[in-house]
Design a protein around this nucleic acid. Structure first.
Length: 723
DNA sequence: ACGTGTTGGCTTTTT
DNA sequence: GCCAACACGT
């Protein structure tokens, strides 16, 4: 391969990073600065120039999508398979290590992965078993506590409770939860990382093996690493035998709330020998106006590593800010802008609506629907997280490893086979007394004849079902196992008996699961596992797509978090108001406020050509009308980068201090309505026009409704009919 | 054991 | 305002 190919088409800084000598390196890569490209070319360079075998390279990402994309790009660049290279997510790689060294990690060979939903259910069961009130010990908080401690590398015995009763109890719950996981051979997400870390810490020879093997380590999105991930990398790369390149952007750190620690970038510079820093600041994505606006916003944060994006591209259009009357008006405005974008000959896919929280999507959806524009929403339930799929996986997990208590609880009475709460607590009690799995307890109770009547029959039939499924499907292809599990368990019949579209979709999903089994190829590194076990691990680690990929041309809708790493020619950021974005929850804590600002920065830098920022002066939130002011992030944009879109050109007020609404009565006639006229609205019924603003199609009319009080409604959206 | 009324609670999300 | 989770009633 001609090595110059790896350096052509790169700018100076990119080239510097790709062709750097082997040393520890921090690449500060701004949004849209070609970071993936640098990573891919660097890996190719290491192989071609430094003669490092793919076998000796470890590349770590945060999402499966990123890992897949990177592998694909390297393979197409190098034109050969890179299957010996370890490339994956932290969790995926930790899983791989634990499978390979399960004995040393203290895990059974067929351990299973507990996803967040499983974990939540298990915690609730533990709380019940410990006789603790959920009101006092919210399961979500317990879950957060357990994962938080695991992310810090802490086991229950390491936690200093300061003799605080609450702290002690929390620690006890953590300990009880962990015991239950260990007994059932279950590993949650945080546990994967913690165990992998402990595996190396306790087995120096295993650690030495990997230190020697991985001569080059590369980490993407380093600003998102949490402390246990950092410690794991540090352990691997601290001997000086290998080098690590980390790529990240402190300004795009938006996952602090789930344990990510931006400080890890700073710590890297201190903890790893002779680190070099390279800044990628040339942006290939956005217009200079958008960059200027985004730079100005992020500049309000303190303690940045410092970086200013620039482009030699066009200045482009101004950032447009629109103040909607309410969220309906905001949505209507966005839709009208997308329509004119469409009329200019652009596809819908080039446009994206980004919002702070998912609840915002509904109004936007309705507005798009109303105008017949197709949209695609990202986020929400993934395939393997769906109820019916988890039910089916529960049976497969029981076949794989019947001592899996989480799976047992899920399927023992789904579909209902007459196991009452009483029988179940009997089984749980027995399991606790014998310190065994629910499965063992069930068998024990049957053998002892301790149950009678309906309960005995029900439990007996469940045991029989699992045993038969296990025997009937042993050695069978995966899809046979899944198909039999779904049908013989009565799961399929259960959803068949349910009526409605939802049940129909569930049946289709179950069929889809069988198809997924058929198409599943056991990955090379999992060749010692049974296909079933490998599939179950795959289902937990890769929850699958949110929606089946549709080729339909559609507006892209997602939260700003989800949009990180993506780009769109036309971007709308909706709900950019104090209280929404920054979120009310931020509570003016400086650290959290800065993370919100980074989120704003991420959102703005998604836009390539045109950025709209919108907000609503009044918004129905949790059933109440809230009156918000424009977000501070809007005010932080330099005036020369912004144009305020006004419905009425004659009224123009600065963005910065507008909150009050207009009450002028000028040119009311143009609206086609008259004061005191009776108008109807499909949702609110009949009312009387009291007030208005604007003219023509875009008039805003205040209508008094006898029952509902007075509201501002936007004619164009609300479709008030003159009567 | 299952179906209906009432209460509460509520960012962001990947693995 | 909406959804999920519990309580209660049949």
């Amino acid at each position: 391969m001609d090595v110059s190919l790896l350096l052509d088409d790169l700018n100076d800084k990119q080239r510097e990073a790709v062709a750097a000598p082997q040393t520890n390196m921090l690449v500060l890569a701004g949004a849209g600065s070609g970071k993936t490209r640098v990573l891919v070319h660097r890996i190719a360079w290491l192989m071609e120039v430094e003669n490092i075998a793919p076998f000796s390279i470890l590349a770590v990402t945060f999402t499966n999508k990123a890992a897949k994309e990177m592998r694909g790009r390297i393979e197409s660049l190098m034109k050969r398979s890179m299957h010996t290279m370890w490339m994956g997510t932290f969790h995926g790689l930790a899983h791989r290590l634990l499978r390979a060294h399960h004995a040393e990690a203290g895990l059974p060979e067929n351990f299973q992965i507990l996803d967040s939903d499983d974990q939540y259910r298990l915690i609730r069961r533990i709380l019940k078993a410990m006789n603790l009130d959920e009101k006092h010990w919210p399961p979500r908080q317990v879950q957060w506590y357990i994962n938080g401690n695991k992310d810090e590398g802490l086991r229950p015995q390491h936690i200093d409770t300061h003799n605080d009763h609450t702290q002690q109890k929390m620690r006890d719950i953590y300990a009880a939860y962990q015991e239950s996981c260990d007994r059932s051979g279950l590993v949650d997400f945080a546990e994967l990382l913690l165990r992998a870390h402990e595996l190396w810490a306790r087995n120096p020879e295993i650690l030495a093996h990997y230190q020697k093997r991985f001569r080059a380590v590369l980490v993407d999105e380093f600003q998102d690493t949490n402390n246990i991930q950092y410690a794991w990398l540090r352990m691997l790369c601290s001997t000086g035998d290998n080098t690590i390149m980390i790529v990240g952007d402190d300004d795009q750190s938006i996952y602090g709330w789930r344990g990510a620690n931006v400080d890890n970038i700073h710590k890297f510079l201190k903890d790893f020998p002779k680190p070099e820093t390279i800044r990628l600041e040339q942006n290939y994505r956005s217009t200079s106006t958008i960059l200027k606006a985004a730079n100005a916003v992020i500049d309000n944060n303190t303690g940045r590593l410092g970086k200013e994006l620039w482009t030699d591209g066009a200045e482009g259009e101004l950032v447009s800010v629109y103040a909607g009357f309410n969220e309906l008006d905001e949505a209507r405005f966005i839709v009208s802008q997308i329509k004119s974008w469409l009329q200019q000959g652009h596809p819908l896919t080039e446009s994206a609506i980004l919002y702070r929280n998912n609840a915002q999507s509904r109004v936007l959806e309705e507005a798009l629907l109303h105008e017949g524009l197709a949209y695609r929403i990202y986020g929400g339930l993934r395939f393997f997280e769906r109820q019916e799929i988890k039910d089916a996986l529960g049976y497969l997990r029981m076949i794989n490893h019947p001592h899996d208590d989480a799976a047992y609880e899920r399927v023992v009475n789904t579909p209902s086979r007459g196991m009452g709460e009483k029988t179940l607590s009997n089984i749980r009690e027995t399991a606790r007394a014998h310190n065994c799995s629910l499965w063992q307890a069930s068998n024990l109770l049957i053998a002892e004849g301790a149950l009678k009547g309906r309960a005995a029959n029900a439990l007996q039939s469940f045991i029989l079902l699992i045993t038969e499924l296990e025997q009937a499907t042993e050695g069978q292809p995966l899809e046979e196992q899944a198909d039999k599990a779904i049908r013989q368990s009565g799961l399929y019949a259960m959803y068949q008996a349910e009526k409605g579209e939802k049940a129909q979709a569930r049946l289709e999903n179950l069929e889809e699961l069988v198809t997924a089994c058929k198409q599943f190829v056991v990955p090379e590194e999992a060749d010692e596992m049974t296909p079933l076990s490998a599939f179950l691990a795959h289902a937990s680690l890769e929850a699958g797509e949110t929606q089946a990929d549709s080729d339909q041309d559609a507006v892209q809708m997602m939260t700003i978090h989800t949009a990180k790493g993506l780009e769109f020619p036309l971007v709308f950021m909706a709900g950019v108001e104090e209280g929404m974005f920054p979120s009310q929850m931020t509570n003016d804590e400086p650290g959290r406020m800065e993370e919100e600002r980074r989120l704003a920065y991420v959102g703005m830098t998604r836009a390539m050509k045109k950025l709209f920022i919108t907000y609503a002066e009044s918004r129905r939130l949790y059933g109440q009308d809230k009156y918000h002011t424009a977000s501070r992030f809007i005010r932080e944009i330099p005036a020369e980068c912004v144009e305020e879109v006004r419905l009425k050109s004659t009224v123009s007020r600065p963005v910065h201090n507008r909150f009050s609404r207009a009450t002028s009565h000028e040119s009311f006639e143009q609206t086609g309505f008259q004061l005191g006229q009776r108008v109807t609205h499909r949702k609110f019924g009949e009312g009387i026009v009291l007030n208005y603003e604007g003219s023509g199609d875009h008039a805003r009319v205040q209508v008094n409704f006898d029952e509902f009080g007075s509201k501002w409604l936007v004619l164009a959206y609300a479709k008030l009919q003159p009567t």
